[in-house]
Design a protein around this nucleic acid. Structure first.
Length: 429
RNA sequence: CGGGGCGUAGCUCAGCCUGGUAGAGCGCCAGCUUUGGGAGCUGGAUGUCGCGUGUUCGAAUCACGCCGCCCCGACCA
């Protein structure tokens, strides 16, 4: 993408409303724009990141055997009345009337909807286990939205729902998601600590929140320092061990009964990026979601639900990956892999070289943002550092004389003078 | 919802107290000079001063009402 043809409204100064670093950087990097409290437009750069995050979530759900569907944002109230949550869910749920004065809701979550799908199509225990998920916009009318996309009212969420024949099978489904979550966050360069948590309005009796440790997190968290020694990138993570280690959010943490000795108890703040629940027959019972079991009896299915805040993750990743100059994207979610800077668009040799590199990177299917603007060097470097692309390639008169271009690694600041061929070999890999 | 603050140019903000018809920096447009870390000079464009009502000869400024946004708290992916 040529920057002169792109839409990247970067800001030199941070808008006054932004409090935390990820919010400021998202606004400054032209990723988002607020439309109303807790409601955001996603501009091109932000949208690309959102899509990358979404795709990683999708791939890991698919790998775990979940099946993607798409449920609507608007749901009829009937389902919620049936489950009992029409009254139980507070003003956080946005209730609306259609032209016929029928009660509708803008879905804050989809247990009822997915249970309805299930009960209308699944009749036999032989069709289990089943896990259906979708990635869809939610609306929760939070009392106080804040921190940009970290606590928006409208947000993109992946929610998966498991259906099993009995509690033991449901437990396996839960553990399966548990592992998938660790993998998912890991792929985005995040270490998420699973913590015992309250179930809230979703209901149920087993629940874990996945918390990214960050100073700007909204949750107070307590955890065994043993977590700090775990290699979350290992392929053979011991899930039983992870679940046995103590970690809890403050609403679940009881200092009087904490099993971790004080010297090993760590406390901090976390950003909740995922939350999984096992809730048994909370919905299958009132909504009569049953299958015929092997003994010919009707069995209410055991369910769980599994959420990941996709749009929140974009903010969380920035909280974890930035420096004083701007964002430092992990390559897996970077909006572009390479930022190509032509320092001197007025210099034919520079432009010829930059154009050629641009064409060859595109041909090699490398995502590249080509800064071909007629700006000064400082402005170009500052923009690239701000938007945080992993690799910066600079074409300027200094290097051209020796037939070299410069590669800078955004994260480390490491620089190297390379021939175009060496550069392409490195970046197209 | 309780407490606090703020709405003036695209962004950051001054002007308001003490009423006289709107400014700065950055950004934007044109030209010239410049060119390896957010350049310089010259010229230019840009505002329902959040909305409404009232007071007044006259309101960004004073009063009242409303709306929106931000921060602290309770609530949460």
């Amino acid at each position: 993408m040529r920057l002169t043809r792109y839409f990247l409204p970067v800001l030199k100064e941070a808008p006054a409303e932004a409090e935390i670093v990820s919010h400021r950087l998202m606004l400054r990097a032209g990723m988002i724009q607020q439309l109303a409290a807790g409601i955001y437009n996603w501009l091109p750069l932000g949208f690309r990141v959102l899509k990358k995050v979404e795709q990683i979530v999708r791939e890991e759900m698919d790998r775990a055997g979940a099946i993607e569907i798409l449920m609507p944002t608007i749901q009829p109230a009937d389902l919620w009345i049936e489950s009992g949550r029409w009254d139980a869910y507070g003003p956080e749920m946005l209730r609306i009337l259609d032209r016929h004065e029928r009660k509708m809701v803008y879905g804050p979550t989809n247990e009822e909807n997915v249970t309805d799908i299930f009960r209308r199509h699944v009749r036999s225990y032989r069709q289990l286990p089943l896990n259906l998920y979708h990635i869809q916009w939610k609306f929760r009318d939070e009392i106080r939205p804040r921190y940009g996309v970290m606590r928006g009212r409208e947000f993109l969420m992946k929610d998966a729902y498991s259906f099993d024949i009995d509690a033991e099978a449901a437990r396996k489904s839960y553990d399966n998601m548990f592992v998938a979550y660790l993998r998912t966050f890991r792929r985005m360069g995040l270490t998420a600590i699973p913590m015992q948590a309250e179930s809230g309005p979703i209901g149920g009796n087993m629940s874990h929140e996945f918390q990214i440790l960050a100073k700007t997190g909204e949750s107070h968290v307590f955890y065994d320092q043993a977590f700090e020694e775990i290699d979350f990138s290992a392929d053979d993570l011991d899930i039983e061990k992870l679940k046995s280690l103590y970690a809890a959010t403050d609403d679940k943490h009881d200092p009087a009964n904490c099993p971790v000795p004080p010297e090993r108890l760590r406390t901090g703040r976390g950003i909740e990026v995922g939350h999984i629940f096992y809730f048994g027959t909370k919905y299958s019972k009132p909504m009569r979601a049953t299958v015929t079991g092997p003994d010919d009896r009707e069995i209410e299915v055991e369910m769980g639900s599994y959420g990941i805040g996709v749009s929140r993750l974009v903010g969380a990743i920035i909280e974890a990956h930035h420096d004083e100059h701007g964002i430092v994207w992990p390559e897996s979610v970077a909006p572009f892999k390479v930022g190509l800077i032509n320092l001197r668009p007025d210099d034919p040799a520079c432009t010829a070289m930059a154009d050629e590199l641009y064409g060859r990177l595109l041909a090699a299917k490398v995502e590249v943002l080509y800064d071909d603007r007629d700006e000064r060097a400082g402005a170009k470097f500052a923009t690239m550092d701000l938007i945080g692309l992993p690799y910066q390639v600079t074409v300027g008169p200094r290097g051209i004389k020796e037939g070299k271009v410069e590669l800078k690694i955004r994260r480390s600041g490491e620089r190297a003078e390379l021939t175009p061929e060496a550069l392409l070999a490195r970046l197209a890999a």
